[in-house]
Design a binder for these strands. Sequence first.
DNA 1: CTACTTGCAAATCATTTGCAGATGA
DNA 2: TCATCTGCAAATGATTTGCAAGTAG
Lengths: 164, 164
Amino acid sequence: MPGDFSLRTVQVTLSPLDRFAQFLQSRGKRVTQQRRQIVEQVFSHHDHFDADELMAHLRDELAARRLSRPTIYRTLNELVEAGLLRKMTLGGRSVFEHEYGYPQHDHLYCQVCNALIEFHSQALERLCDQVARQEDFEVLGHRLFVTGICAKCRRRQKPSRASD
Amino acid sequence: MPGDFSLRTVQVTLSPLDRFAQFLQSRGKRVTQQRRQIVEQVFSHHDHFDADELMAHLRDELAARRLSRPTIYRTLNELVEAGLLRKMTLGGRSVFEHEYGYPQHDHLYCQVCNALIEFHSQALERLCDQVARQEDFEVLGHRLFVTGICAKCRRRQKPSRASD
DNA sequence: CTACTTGCAAATCATTTGCAGATGA
DNA sequence: TCATCTGCAAATGATTTGCAAGTAG
């Protein structure tokens, strides 16, 4: 590799917690045990989750009263504000996913097992821009859900095509 | 015009109310004053609406107690089941739009004024099918929201580009 | 007639908020 | 120190449900 490593601010490598700390500081907010704990749990693995699932993971802390339901909700909202999480609504329920350090993507949603399968399409982005241009609309983001039945559930539902 | 009008079952011309009546009958349910009234109001014009907006339109009936909040909700759900309405969630609130007799489309969503601008794209449908094929996923539908700022609001927000 | 419907009031359910005590910078 | 946080309990707000009385077929 040639030595073309030029000036490059490595802000992307900031850990979610550091990034959050930075956000909090900029707002005069504090880095507390609870917020630390929640961020750590949330970014410990890549997955879609809702408040209940997160609470299930933190049940010990909740049981020990070192953490509470309202704090979970408050912190999730802050994480969205901070741009660390993306929030979406799925069947009346708020579902979150990593936004920070994670590439833009859309979802296939299996309405049988509720699985969310991620995919990315540049063509889709071009399509959004194109439509927007026609309407003189400024695109800030998009969300595509393709609903249907995932491979696994299809196999389960149609063991044989006898009755068709 | 040449006389090529061949056999053509005109089931599409069924009014929303008739279509609903048909659905109700198939379920052993009844065509009541309330359901009739709601369907009529809902299909009196093409627009997106939520339960509150619908209730505002029917406020006289509600005031006269010939109709109630629970009945509105119950009937809206039946209309979705019947395939007459499509339901989506927008900011925690259920929003409905005509599905029966109305072409498939997607939306530009202005996050400033909450306007929903409809558009249709065949390319998008092809894209969904293509992605689905790769994942061995059976597509039953899709929903694309392009969020951003509509032309009107952009003009209002940036009267001049002075500060840029 | 009689099962399906309705309006009412009360229940849900996820999420939010007021407040007094606890705590991070 | 002292403004920001937190847990608690209670409030919210949209939507749903149990039930006795009303009504469609």
